[in-house]
Design a protein around this nucleic acid. Structure first.
Lengths: 302, 302
DNA sequence: GCCGATGATGCAGATTTTGCATAGGGCATG
DNA sequence: CATGCCCTATGCAAAATCTGCATCATCGGC
């Protein structure tokens, strides 16, 4: 019996869809199916009724779900506990977030945190949206930092996983400068020639946000996707090199905007203001974790 | 992370000896070592201090042991629960015992049980001594039936695993009949020629008992091992066929003794009276399980 | 009736696990 | 100090398992 089977089952019990769950777990659908079946075989009972649409949990499945949840959490919590013990007093606090936030927001934020709490030993995991959530839910990380915007809510129970606003961010369209500090690749007014566009990889969180921005406008801009990439940092360099236009978190390009190596590529309606939120599990943790959280509470931006 | 790693670790934390624990878990020592290391890698901490003698648990190990124990039990209990649910009202009660007891004692005993409780749906697992204990401890079976004798106590905490005497048994030396209903292969008085002896497989529980019998005598008998076998039933047939002398549980050969196809092969000092005990975990279980246990309490032999 | 979506299955390749043989380290004994 | 014993770790090849791809079977919706 594998821990990952339990996690698979939990994911499935949320989506009630094998293919979707498989994707969330970074597995192919056949593999996922088989792993669920492995779990069922080990138990000796059927957990999921595949005959209905959408699939549904059997009575045993509903009952086992609770136990699986507790078991998974208990194991990760215990692992964290062991690490804490091994690390001694100055134990590591674990964070998980997007690459972008890890680069643009976290380093500075950690400074302000440490300014109030004294030096912290931290561990950071960078991951995709789904993996961030998985990481938090499983207990593998104490805290998650994530963008928050009403147009793209996370699948996360706000009671089980309370959050606090810890910062603000704006997603703004930028380009390398052309003549006279004007954007070389303007979002609008480029005539009939489409503007080269550097896009975030599909199925990522930021793409969902950018799609929201575009969908909110009366006229879609004339863009031609020239490049696709999941790393903000990479897109930023591509943009500075003049490959095209992209949206970037404002904080991550403050210096470049001032220096003029990047310029705003469109009016403010094409920007998106969002929050940066810190999430935690309601499960109580080590003293240090609680200390951090209560500080965040005090200093929360609202 | 594998459930079996947790079980490995629990076994190790009991024996504090990799080789011994590996044997108990039916693994080779290298494999066992690696699995413990896998667990440690997953946790990110060292659980066992190999530097001491005997090996000892680290602080993290001691802490994790509790969690591991709970997790293992929770999972097996939950599995049992699921099976119960799936089986409906008339769920199966699971027993584990030695092959011998399953054949000699259980069938009759179950009748008396059912006489009082009504028909039961039962499941029986036959296993070796170690596996029987594993089975009970892990929660894979509700009840264990086992021989009990002071000379060979089980490694089982009597508080965690209370037991009741449910029957009596005698291990007696028997042989096929020779002339005039005398044993063809007598235990004693065979002159200088050794008596052919059919022995139980080494490392089994019954062998430990028989060794006790022999060790308790002033003079060791003159025996020559002709055959070794872990199955009572098989030894019984071998004995009836006249291959030699062996010790068998009296109940399993009642009919044969009456019919004269087997005869006592030695005086009564060479027999061993023992109890048959039913064990359970203190963990509360399903209603049916509790019903059975309370009946056993009433009807316990003492 | 056809289409898109969903879950199951056959199969080959890749990964992981296992046991055997053996190395290396510590401890007691002569 | 040498020797032998007991313990755990490691190299390696065979075996078992897991995974992904391609494909099939089924079902609901238009």
């Amino acid at each position: 019996m594998e821990l990952s089977w339990l996690e698979d089952f939990l994911t499935l019990s949320n989506t009630l869809n094998f293919s979707r769950a498989a994707e969330l777990r970074n597995l192919t659908q056949p593999t996922f199916s088989r792993r669920i079946r492995n779990l069922e075989n080990w138990l000796g009972v059927t957990l999921v009724d595949r005959g209905t649409f959408p699939a549904s949990l059997t009575a045993e499945g509903r009952s086992f779900r609770k136990a699986a949840e507790e078991t998974v959490h208990a194991l990760y919590r215990e692992r964290e506990q062991c690490l804490q013990m091994a690390g001694g007093e100055a134990s590591f606090q674990s964070f998980v977030t997007l690459h972008t936030i890890a680069v643009s927001f976290f380093p500075h934020w950690l400074h302000t945190l440490e300014g109030k709490l004294g030096p912290l030993r931290t561990r950071m995991t960078c991951a995709t949206m789904n993996d961030c959530v998985e990481n938090l839910v499983s207990g593998a990380s104490n805290f998650m930092l994530f963008y928050a915007h009403p147009s793209a809510p996370l699948r996360l129970d706000p009671v089980q996983y309370p959050s606090l606003v810890v910062g603000k961010e704006r997603l703004i369209p930028v380009s390398a400068p052309g003549r006279g500090r004007k954007p070389r690749h303007p979002l609008l007014g480029g005539g009939t020639k489409p503007t080269p566009y550097l896009r975030y990889a599909r199925h990522t969180f930021i793409t969902r946000l950018i799609d929201t921005i575009i969908a909110a406008q009366p006229k879609p801009p004339l863009l031609e996707v020239r490049h696709e990439n999941a790393l903000t940092l990479s897109l930023k360099v591509m943009t500075m090199e003049g490959h095209g236009l992209t949206w970037l978190p404002e904080t991550s390009i403050k210096a470049e905007l001032q220096a003029g190596s990047l310029v705003l590529a469109g009016p403010s309606e094409w920007s998106l203001a969002m929050e940066i939120r810190a999430y935690r599990s309601v499960q109580r943790g080590a003293r240090e974790k609680e200390r951090i959280w209560s500080l965040l509470h005090e200093s929360a931006v609202d």
